[in-house]
């Protein structure tokens, strides 16, 4: 087992009167892609938002590189090296692509070499550099959202359903980009409903249900066991191919 980068122990999160996370225990090893699966309403998005400090954990601890970040404010968590790509992409539509990227470089000016790498990874960033982000298509916005998250070196990127509502060609492109990102030092925690995509990029997998982690293991093991998929998520890999 690789050294853990992020560890959630008994994390509970309440949103108003609702008890969403009910004792989440999750380990994200350093390097590669960890996938968080589960049906709608299982608590995947809440888990990411709680890690990011956007919703406060009411109980439990979140350790990042051994340091307790449970009560840290969101900007401090970001500055510790965690980036977040939310489900709604969080693009600033009134700003240009260039302005979105400039703002994402919170620690200083844009690094030209890294920017060039990102433009190669996501060609629309180059094409629409001076365009308003609000005029981009859904897939291009998703690329901008991921590009923004990696404009500075990050230790961990939390990505929430990057393929939701996208055309198959864009999903393939996004999948390729994540595979290339895997080759860097960055660790990815990916929430995904598209099992084909998740199994193609994931190294480890955790499955959530009703605010708990109900399964954790290697992705290859889950991908190769249709009965386990059926039991954990009520789906079969074949149905998604």
């Amino acid at each position: 087992m690789k050294e853990p980068l992020l560890t959630l122990s008994g994390v509970h999160t309440h949103i108003g009167p609702y008890h969403i996370l009910q004792g989440v225990d999750l380990v994200v090893p350093k390097g590669g892609v960890s996938v968080l699966l589960g049906r709608n309403g299982a608590g995947k998005t809440t888990t990411l938002r709680t890690i990011m400090g956007l919703w406060q954990a009411s109980e439990g601890t979140i350790l990042f590189e051994g340091q307790d970040i449970t009560k840290l404010p969101t900007p401090e968590i970001s500055r510790a090296g965690i980036a977040f790509v939310p489900e709604d992409m969080g693009i600033f539509t009134d700003l240009t692509v260039a302005e979105n990227m400039t703002l994402a470089a919170a620690r200083g000016p844009l690094d030209p070499d890294r920017l060039e790498w990102i433009k190669t990874l996501f060609p629309p960033i180059r094409t629409f550099w001076e365009s308003s982000a609000g005029t981009l298509s859904g897939g291009q916005k998703q690329m901008l959202s991921v590009a923004r998250a990696i404009i500075e070196p990050r230790k961990l990127i939390l990505i929430d359903e990057p393929t939701k509502g996208l055309a198959p060609a864009i999903i393939k492109a996004m999948s390729d980009a994540l595979l290339e990102l895997k080759e860097t030092d960055t660790t990815i925690l990916l929430v995904e409903q598209n099992f084909s995509m998740a199994s193609a990029v994931g190294d480890t997998v955790s499955v959530m249900d009703d605010g708990h982690i109900v399964h954790a293991g290697e992705m290859a093991e889950l991908a190769g066991d249709a009965r386990m998929q059926e039991r954990l998520m009520g789906l079969s890999l074949e149905a998604h191919q």
């Binding site: 900007p75 980036a83 600033f92 539509t93 994402a104 919170a106």
Partner: peptide, 12 residues
């Protein structure tokens, strides 16, 4: 437009 995202990018 989106104060939460500005915080997630590391700004106070």
């Amino acid at each position: 437009e989106n104060g939460e995202m500005v915080e997630a990018l590391g700004y106070r």
